[in-house]
């Protein structure tokens, strides 16, 4: 797809906006629709778009599999550790009230952190799945087309 100049230009323009929108969705979930999951999907789709236009190998340079393999579990770990933090700070598992000076701040902080965890894992998993498919060689009979 190297010769699709228009696609390349448009997507180069588009991708930053998608990323920006993803960030907005990630952190604006408290106020409107959205949250970590949706943001993660958007992040991932930006990468997938990049990979489709510029090739998977280029995408892998931006976001190598090694980094992904690290990011996939990290989101979940962040989430789970937030839960443990609740215990350590004297509350129950996943108790955000105790995370900051007063319950409401605690709740805000807790939600922010776990949404970040969700976003990380979701985005990383989606890209991982895409890479896994892309890394597969095609062996399709012609008649199937």
């Amino acid at each position: 797809m190297k010769h699709h100049l228009i696609l390349r230009v448009v997507s180069k323009l588009l991708i930053p906006f998608i990323l920006l929108f993803a960030l907005y969705v990630q952190f604006h979930g408290d106020y409107g629709p959205g949250g970590g999951f949706q943001a993660g999907v958007l992040f991932a789709s930006a990468f997938i778009l990049y990979a489709l236009i510029f090739g998977v190998d280029n995408a892998r340079e931006v976001l190598p599999s090694k980094a992904l393999r690290f990011l996939v579990p990290v989101g979940l770990i962040i989430y789970a550790l937030t839960g443990f933090a609740g215990i350590v700070m004297g509350g129950k598992f996943l108790d955000y009230d105790v995370l900051a000076q007063d319950p409401q701040h605690g709740q805000h902080l807790g939600i922010l952190v776990i949404e970040f965890g969700v976003g990380t894992t979701v985005a990383a998993v989606m890209v991982t799945i895409f890479y896994a498919y892309a890394g597969r060689t095609r062996d399709v009979d012609d008649e199937d087309w």
């Binding site: 579990p73 990290v74 979940l76 789970a80 839960g83 598992f93």
Partner: peptide, 19 residues
């Protein structure tokens, strides 16, 4: 917190294991 740990510890260990 044993009830929570019963599940939370394996749950946390899974992503750690993949690292």
């Amino acid at each position: 917190h044993m009830a929570a740990l019963q599940v939370a510890v394996p749950l946390l260990s899974a992503p750690v294991c993949s690292l």
